[in-house]
Simulated scan of single mutants.
Amino acid sequence: MNSEDIEKQHAGLVALAIVSLIAGAACGALGTLFRLSLERADQARDVFIARARSEPVSLDANRSNGYPVTPDSVAPNRRDARYP
């Protein structure tokens, strides 16, 4: 190996190190965004559960207080879950 080959290898290793740092930073940022989205979803779920527990839910669509839960709306979902 002559000095030109060694310099090319050195330059390639430096480029690889730089690219790996950028890729690692991007993966870390993506992981952080995912973690934050999970925390927000957890907070939203807690709010939804608290609201659902504070207001009665009726199976009658005319008295549902904003929650139209009827047997007709639940039955198709149950069928899909049972027969994929």
Rank of each mutant, 00 (worst) to 15 (best):
P84I: 00
R40Y: 03
R82G: 00
S20G: 03
L13Y: 09
A23E: 09
P71L: 11
V14T: 09
K8C: 07
A25H: 06
S20T: 15
S37D: 09
L36I: 10
A26C: 07
D42A: 15
N62S: 13
A81C: 01
Y83D: 01
E4I: 12
G28L: 13
G12L: 11
A25T: 13
V69K: 00
L16A: 15
N65H: 14
N2K: 05
T70S: 03
V69C: 05
A44P: 00
L36Y: 02
S64P: 01
E39V: 10
R53A: 13
D5Q: 15
Y67Q: 04
G24M: 06
S20W: 12
S54V: 00
A26F: 08
A29C: 06
L33H: 06
L13G: 04
E39Y: 08
L33I: 11
R53D: 13
G28M: 11
F34K: 07
A52S: 11
A17E: 13
I49A: 02
P84C: 01
A15W: 05
Y67H: 09
P71C: 03
D72R: 07
G66S: 04
P71F: 11
A15R: 14
R82S: 05
A41Q: 15
A50C: 03
T32M: 11
N77Q: 04
P76I: 02
V57E: 04
A29P: 00
D42Y: 09
N65I: 01
L33K: 11
D42W: 10
N77C: 02
R35C: 05
H10K: 14
F48T: 05
G12W: 07
R82M: 08
I6H: 05
V57S: 12
R53I: 09
G66W: 03
A15S: 11
A50E: 13
I18Y: 00
S20N: 15
E39I: 10
T70Q: 02
L30C: 04
H10A: 10
E39R: 12
L13V: 01
G66H: 03
A81F: 06
N2T: 06
D60H: 04
S20A: 15
A61K: 10
P76L: 02
N77H: 12
I18H: 02
Q9F: 13
S73Y: 00
G24Y: 03
R78Q: 04
R63E: 07
E39A: 10
T32W: 10
A25D: 04
L38A: 08
I49F: 08
N65G: 02
P68L: 02
R78H: 02
E7F: 12
T32F: 12
T32E: 07
D60N: 14
L16T: 05
D80K: 14
R53Y: 13
E55R: 10
A81N: 01
S58F: 02
R45A: 13
Q9R: 14
L33W: 12
M1R: 09
A50S: 14
L13S: 04
M1P: 03
D5A: 14
D80R: 15
A17M: 08
I49N: 01
K8Y: 13
C27I: 15
D60K: 06
S73V: 03
E7W: 09
R53M: 14
G24C: 07
D72T: 03
L30Y: 11
I18F: 00
D60Q: 08
L36M: 06
S37T: 09
V57T: 14
F34R: 10
